[in-house]
Amino acid sequence: MQALFLSRLNKIYASGVHALRDVDLVVDEGEFFGLLGPNGAGKSTIIGIISSLVRKTRGRVEVFGYSIDREPWQAKSLLGLVPQEFNFNSFETVSQIILNQAGFYGINRRTAHQRAEQYLTELGLWSRRNSVSRTLSGGMKRRLMIARALVHQPRLLILDEPTAGVDIEVRRSMWDFLRRINAEGTTIILSTHYLEEAESLCRNIAIIDQGQIIENTDVRSLLRKLTAQSFLLDIDGRLADVPELGDFHVVPVDESCLEVEVRSDQSLNELFARLAERNVQVVSMKNKSNRLEELFIRMLERPPEAHREPTQVEKTA
């Protein structure tokens, strides 16, 4: 079953900004789906339209087969949203925020209390349940928003930059939590700037740029499109000269570190054989950047004049 179906979705803001152009997207039930794109690409507009905070100009949106126009009650009941910005009442306690949210979805008080305890415990916030929300740290606020979005147990959870500004330890615990609820059956759509996060969590990914989907495939297929990867090699000792490694493109980073580009038609064995021939001992090695990040940057590369705000609707003369 399709958890989300978007067809020819368009959004033109009152300012004239054409934020979405005929976006088609299908997310199947049970998926962990990544929605990626640079700032201003239209990710938050798509999420806003699905969650009814943004009015679409035209197009169709269905959540588990329910149209957000004709059957909003059903569509909204199945949807949970973790927005990019903190949007809870900063004067309310953690418990109040969760219980109120449950109330908005028609969950009785007793069940709401049980679920509040369950999700706050799982997200490490139960001990802070009586704290006023504005006193929480940034990471706690992010986790509170996830707990709030889950209290009505939505079948589709949309997360817009859920780990922005949180430390790596909290981020990884949130990843584990999201993997688990996805494994339990919740379909997840994740919008993130951390491409390592998307590569680690998502099975399928759509890349949006200037209001259009420019790629929509599974992560493995996407990574196969990467024609070259750059590696950083830490060398034992100091190099007097940059070693000649045949077809491999080598750039010295410093006296004991090399950056080597390996094309998809070359192998690492070949690289290491060449290094051994020149008596270069490699102590450690790592990708210069995340693979998806590298691909993402290459896909979005465009001439400098093309880097501009989303296009304005052309005004007729």
Partner: peptide
């Protein structure tokens, strides 16, 4: 923006 809590709900 906590009005959004209600607006996204059914």
């Amino acid at each position: 923006r906590h009005i959004e809590e209600i607006l996204v709900s059914p």
